[in-house]
Design a protein around this nucleic acid. Structure first.
Lengths: 190, 190
DNA sequence: GGTAAGTCTTGCCATATGACAGGAAATACC
DNA sequence: GGTATTTCCTGTCATATGGCAAGACTTACC
């Protein structure tokens, strides 16, 4: 059990070391394999995953049935479908592994218990949600203030592991373009 | 004091009528005027607003200094900058009134108090945040799966009040296009 | 090792949107 | 009421990206 790993994710001034121990105990080790589904559209998310290594990807389908990658989840990220987990609804996203990997999952019930029992965890939870909201808003803004090329360069700089491991077609839809265009952008960058 | 108004916003199975009364008492009436700043970039958000009537708009600046509208806030919406309010940081968005209006605000301290004292309010809060996150994600997806024209038509259908009250340039940046293009789209739709 | 399946690149042409600038129309202001 | 300001529309041309299809290349599999 790698305490540093959890410490890094559950970082909040109100979470004490003994809180952290309680929190850690609520997690369960999970190995995942490339191409494995972690969550399917229509199912209810029952847990969230702290990724220790490997990469996940969440995606939806557009009106033509094409996969649109909405997010990549890398080591030290938390992966889940918020609306499904926290509002107990059917998921509207798929989550699938694009590499083999290792994660720690926590169930909704245990999350719920911690959330109500532990003040620090509660604050952390709210802060994390609002942080995710901020990231999501930023992304929406960059989707139309930056060119596809700039967004790709930014991805290379911030998440080289994604660029190295994910197939071009998934990166392309994440960037909001076709694989054809991304291929041209790559050529241009060289 | 319009109870129905609050009831509609603070709708959650775990919020009892007496909870609701406590919650309502924490709010304070605020009138706002067209072009008034509710929040400025760099300031810390200290409250959130339940809008009873009128429209607010939040916006950022792109790398060229142009205003980009990130959101409109209509009657029965809650308006704030989440990251600033909940993570006690400087805001990275401006919020400005585009019409005169009336809102009810609640301060961070009172929100915080309710959040820790009241189970139903806490659940509502988390549910609301994850709902916002869902909306934000949906918007990011639609920004590249739908054409600007479709997004505009959708806006007309879902939020006619915005189309009627906001100047074209603000609607355009919200849709991710220029006012020139929006003008052409409007012409085409007729 | 050979076939099949999937992945990436490239060429051609179409289209949506942007940049800029001029003008019309509406609105604000003294 | 008249000037200034803002808002909106429109024309021309440039550019980014898409759609489609062919081919090269890689990977998986029996």
């Amino acid at each position: 059990m790698n305490t540093k790993f959890f410490q890094n994710i559950y970082k909040h001034p109100l979470i004490t070391p003994s809180d952290l121990n309680v929190i850690i105990k609520c997690h369960q080790k999970v190995h995942f394999k490339k191409a494995e589904f972690i969550l399917k559209i229509g199912d209810q998310a029952n847990d969230y995953y702290l990724i220790e290594n490997g990469i996940l990807r969440s995606f939806v389908y557009d009106y033509n049935g094409n996969e649109i990658t909405t997010n990549f989840h890398c080591p030290n990220d938390i992966s889940t479908e918020y609306a499904s987990l926290f509002q107990r609804q059917a998921s509207n996203e798929n989550i699938m592994a694009i590499t083999d990997g290792l994660a720690w999952k926590i169930t909704y019930d245990l999350f719920q218990k911690l959330f109500h029992q532990n003040n620090g965890f509660r604050e952390w939870g709210r802060s994390w949600l609002s942080q995710q909201l901020f990231i999501s808003t930023q992304r929406a803004i960059e989707m139309h203030t930056k060119s596809a090329k700039d967004r790709y360069i930014q991805l290379i700089q911030n998440n080289p592991q994604i660029v190295q491991n994910a197939p071009i077609k998934h990166i392309a839809t994440y960037l909001g373009i076709t694989d054809t265009s991304l291929s041209r952008i790559r050529k241009e960058i060289l």
